[in-house]
Amino acid sequence: MSGGVEWGLHCCVVLSGSGEPVPAAKLAEFHDVSPSYLAKQLQLLSRAGLVRSTQGQSGGYGLTRPPAEITVLDVVEAIDGSRPAFRCTEVRRRGPLAAPPEKCLTPCSIARVMDAADRAWRESLRAVTIADLAGEVGRTSGPETLARARAWLQT
């Protein structure tokens, strides 16, 4: 998983309660990350329909849906794509003792285990929303944390 996923999730959490668009430059400054790097992540989120960009003097980024309707998996797939983490290359059909194709009609045990793990990982990320993450920030860092962050972003 790329580092862009972490930045994208952090941006979505701070945008979750923002009533006004937040400029990309402010988000980059707030997270102490390169503006061009963060802009790339925001563009990916925008292409996936998770955030929208508003142009002009008071422009910036905002969520397109309520935070309870955006999952962590939505953000992961927007930034890193939806391909499985493991791709079987049929190692069992290589080398001096290679299995012939007719003996490889079903996925090998390694591919099955990795596919099951990928499905479980995705289901776990699908079960957590941006609203859940924002609520957790309030519980672990104090209820004023996100309010202070949003106020800073609007200055």
Rank of each mutant, 00 (worst) to 15 (best):
R65T: 05
A131T: 04
P21F: 10
R87T: 13
D74F: 02
L133C: 12
E69N: 12
E144A: 06
A111P: 01
A149S: 15
A85W: 06
T155W: 06
L38T: 04
E102R: 10
T89K: 12
I130E: 08
R148M: 10
L50C: 06
A39Q: 12
V113Q: 14
G135I: 04
P66A: 15
D118V: 02
V91M: 10
V137K: 03
Q43A: 10
F86C: 08
L125G: 02
M1A: 14
E69I: 02
Q43L: 11
C108I: 02
R94T: 15
L44T: 00
R150K: 06
T140G: 02
I79C: 02
L105H: 08
R112K: 14
S34N: 13
A117D: 07
T155L: 10
D32M: 11
I110K: 08
I79Q: 03
Y61P: 00
E20R: 14
W152C: 06
E144C: 01
S34F: 02
V5H: 01
G81Y: 07
H31M: 14
L15Y: 07
R139F: 03
V72T: 12
T140L: 15
V128K: 13
G8S: 02
E144I: 01
V113L: 13
P96E: 14
A24Q: 09
G8Q: 04
A120V: 10
V33G: 01
A98V: 04
P107T: 08
K40E: 14
D74I: 04
R52H: 11
T145F: 06
A147N: 05
F86N: 07
S82F: 08
D80R: 09
R122H: 05
V5A: 03
C11E: 07
P101K: 03
Q55K: 12
G56W: 00
P96Q: 11
R47P: 01
L27R: 06
M1L: 08
F86R: 05
L9Q: 03
T140Y: 11
G62I: 00
V91E: 13
A25P: 00
M1C: 06
W7L: 15
K40V: 12
S141E: 13
R112F: 01
W121R: 15
A85Y: 13
A151I: 02
V13S: 08
F86P: 03
H10Q: 14
R93H: 05
G95W: 03
R122P: 04
W121T: 09
R148W: 08
P107G: 03
K40M: 12
R93W: 00
S36V: 14
P67I: 04
P84F: 05
P84G: 10
S82R: 11
G19K: 08
A120C: 05
S36M: 08
K103W: 09
D115K: 14
G8R: 07
